[in-house]
């Protein structure tokens, strides 16, 4: 099981936590096949904040969905640590998405019938049976409220999504994504629908979670300014990693261990 850091000549390199191996994906619609990913090899290291950039239709969201088990590749493999996850049975993939992965999306995707705190509680609700819930409810609600406080929405706990601004909804979505203390956060254009200021706030929040809590973040964006603030930028072009422009900006050293002592989002293995 990979938990420690590997000593290299250039310093301490964290182990890859998530890896795509020659991944291919083709969509078929109305008899027309579109090959979106044409053999992508790519990995994300533990505690890293990686952004995938590329033009529209380059396959970046598809790659994110495949790595987050929301979709399955036609060929190739996805590895979480040393466990292959693309061919897991549905139930196992559901468990991964519930406990090990967190997702945020461009359009926030909050459940409109639930309040902010209930939305944050949603992954815990999914994980608990009717019988378990009464025992878990108190602690889970406390954590959900703490998370909302942390993302600056302590005063919005009982508001419904339609009563909140875009930035607030996205912050609620982030709180929901980290509710079950996942190892990896998948962010699909998280600032795509926000103005500059709100976008910057979201990026700052993601950066804080990554730095302070050791949360691994894989973000898809077409905003280079946002991408530039991440540890590493991976370019996708026509369904392939663009080899001519890798790595774009090794802003932060890969040898950096999490800064704070808080390791709650750190990689927990996949056992």
């Amino acid at each position: 099981m990979q938990t420690g850091y590997i000593e290299t000549t250039s310093g301490v390199v964290p182990p890859p936590i998530l890896r795509a191996e020659n991944v291919r994906k083709t969509y078929r619609r109305n008899g027309i096949s579109t090959e979106v990913l044409k053999g992508v090899d790519f990995s994300v290291n533990h505690g890293e904040f990686v952004s995938i950039v590329g033009a529209s239709g380059s396959g970046k969201s598809t790659l994110l969905h495949l790595m987050g088990t929301l979709d399955s590749p036609d060929a190739g493999a996805i590895w979480l640590g040393d466990r292959r996850i693309d061919n897991l049975p549905g139930r196992e993939r559901d468990k991964l998405r519930n406990g090990r992965f967190g997702f945020i999306f461009q359009f926030y995707h909050l459940l409109p019938e639930l309040t902010a705190v209930e939305n944050v509680l949603a992954p815990e609700l999914v994980a608990s049976s009717v019988w378990q819930w009464p025992f878990r409810k108190k602690a889970a609600t406390r954590r959900a409220e703490e998370l909302l406080e942390r993302v600056g929405l302590g005063h919005r706990k009982h508001h419904r999504p339609r009563e909140m601004s875009g930035g607030e909804m996205q912050r609620t979505a982030i709180a929901r994504a980290i509710m079950t203390r996942p190892g990896i956060l998948f962010a699909d254009e998280p600032t795509g629908n926000l103005d500059e200021a709100a976008g910057a706030e979201i990026m700052a929040l993601l950066r804080e979670l990554n730095r302070a809590d050791g949360l691994t973040v894989l973000m898809v964006t077409h905003n280079m300014e946002m991408a530039n603030t991440t540890d590493r930028i991976v370019r996708l072009a026509s369904g392939r990693i663009d080899p001519t422009r890798q790595p774009v900006q090794p802003v932060h050293s890969l040898s950096r261990p999490p800064e704070s002592g808080r390791m709650e989002y750190a990689y927990r293995g996949v056992g």
């Binding site: 929301l70 998405r97 997702f103 949603a122 992954p123 999914v126």
Partner: peptide, 11 residues
């Protein structure tokens, strides 16, 4: 909403 629930791990 169904997509959201599935992304949250609902079977």
């Amino acid at each position: 909403d169904i997509g959201i629930l599935k992304s949250l791990g609902a079977s």
